[in-house]
Amino acid sequence: MSFSFTKANLERIEVLKNRYPSTQALSLPCLWMAQYQEGYITLDAIDVISETIDVPAMEIYRVATFYTMFHLEATQKKRVLVCKTLSCKLCGSEGILEHLKGHDVLVEHVECLGSCGTAPVMQIDDVNYENLTPEKVDTILEALR
């Protein structure tokens, strides 16, 4: 197998094993670690997680496909999550989505990000950018290049 957890992650996993009644609880934490390590979750990583926490690989795989934030495919582009749910829509998310078409990023239309009071919002690398305007989007993406 070509995947292996970093030393730091292996240490985190050992700490977490003492935090839960069963190692199965570690499937989401491990999937996150694998995703941060490689940018997405490979089948190799799933097999390694399966061995690490003693849960069948299929169970890890079906968990990975249930949650929208886990990516099973690689992308070279920056992922930009744009909330399309009601409060953001009422405050102009459609204009933001339209504007993003002019940028070379991977736009994902996602459901409510919990920024209803500061809508519209996009999330890049776990950070929310709120009260967006097209101009703000340009500035943010420029700064992140």
Binding site: P56, M58, E59, Y61, R62, T65, F66
Partner: peptide
């Protein structure tokens, strides 16, 4: 454990 329901 070969089969599972994937996606949602």
């Amino acid at each position: 454990h070969e089969l599972g329901i994937i996606g949602r």
